[in-house]
Computed example of a mutant assay.
Amino acid sequence: MKILILSTAGISSRFNTSLKSKKPVLKSIFYKNTPKHSLLGRFLEFHKYFDKIIIVGGFLFNELEATLKYFNTNNIDLIYNDKYNSLGSGYSLYLGLKKTLEYNFSEIIFSEGDLFVDKDNFLKIIKSPKDTISINNHDIYANKSVSLYINTKNHIKYIYDKSHNSLEILEPFTAIFNSAQIWKFSNTKKIRNIINKCQESIFKDTNLEFIQKYFSDVDINNCAIIKFKKWINCNTIDDFEKINFRG
């Protein structure tokens, strides 16, 4: 059973500030022409490749629920994150993962819901038979990047500064990349063990704590790396204006 988890619970503060609208919007469902031309609409183009799509919402949840009716997709589980205004994106991932435990899943893809990615490389992640990390070709800046590096033991390490000031690596490394923030987890036993053994507290901040636990002992040679040709982290309306939904 193939499952996609999308996190769309956040309050979209930077997006709404840039939009300068009196009425707040949820950026994952924001569109100008048709709901298909939204960030969520791009991900739902791939619904046929998944047995289940678990969408975790919170902010403007009723509008998200109403928008999903437009797509008429019958394999979606919509989950409400009642702590969307107080906890980080890790808690949305936690709720999505807890839902997957109800199913006999074989693999999970997790993505932040505020991304726009090219179709070809997202399909490569879907079709990858093993653990997969994604990268993009953007420059790495501490004020906006989620970065990863490969240490001399060939292990994957993620670095991110919540205060957006600086990044620090305290060990030798062989490569560094800008993360595209989409992951495939193919080891179902490991997923269940992490969820069952770890305290819920590791999910109260960013989603990287779970992701790092999963990938900490994964040899990069046993993992696929997919590089997106088109990748936009849609933080502002200017970011949204750069999107070509046909690409």
Results as ranks from 00 to 15, higher is better:
124 K>Y: 13
146 V>M: 08
122 F>R: 05
142 A>P: 13
154 N>A: 04
154 N>H: 12
138 H>T: 03
142 A>D: 06
130 K>R: 00
149 Y>M: 04
143 N>V: 00
141 Y>D: 08
155 H>R: 11
156 I>D: 08
155 H>G: 01
135 I>E: 13
147 S>D: 07
132 T>M: 02
121 N>M: 13
127 K>L: 05
137 N>C: 07
126 I>V: 04
124 K>A: 12
120 D>W: 00
122 F>Y: 13
141 Y>L: 14
155 H>M: 09
127 K>E: 00
145 S>M: 02
122 F>T: 12
151 N>D: 15
144 K>S: 14
133 I>L: 04
136 N>T: 06
139 D>C: 09
151 N>H: 11
129 P>F: 00
129 P>H: 03
137 N>E: 15
125 I>W: 13
121 N>G: 14
123 L>I: 13
133 I>E: 06
123 L>V: 12
137 N>G: 05
134 S>H: 04
125 I>F: 10
132 T>A: 03
135 I>Y: 14
134 S>N: 06
138 H>M: 06
120 D>F: 07
135 I>P: 11
141 Y>S: 09
156 I>S: 00
128 S>G: 02
136 N>P: 13
153 K>S: 07
144 K>H: 06
142 A>W: 12
134 S>L: 07
144 K>N: 12
143 N>C: 04
137 N>L: 10
128 S>H: 00
151 N>K: 08
135 I>D: 11
123 L>Y: 14
123 L>Q: 13
142 A>M: 10
121 N>V: 15
134 S>G: 11
132 T>E: 08
145 S>R: 01
156 I>M: 02
141 Y>A: 08
123 L>P: 03
139 D>M: 10
146 V>R: 11
145 S>D: 05
135 I>G: 10
122 F>E: 09
122 F>C: 09
145 S>Q: 03
129 P>M: 01
152 T>P: 00
129 P>Q: 03
135 I>K: 14
136 N>R: 09
150 I>S: 03
124 K>C: 05
121 N>L: 14
136 N>L: 08
128 S>R: 00
124 K>N: 14
146 V>Y: 06
154 N>S: 12
121 N>P: 13
147 S>A: 15
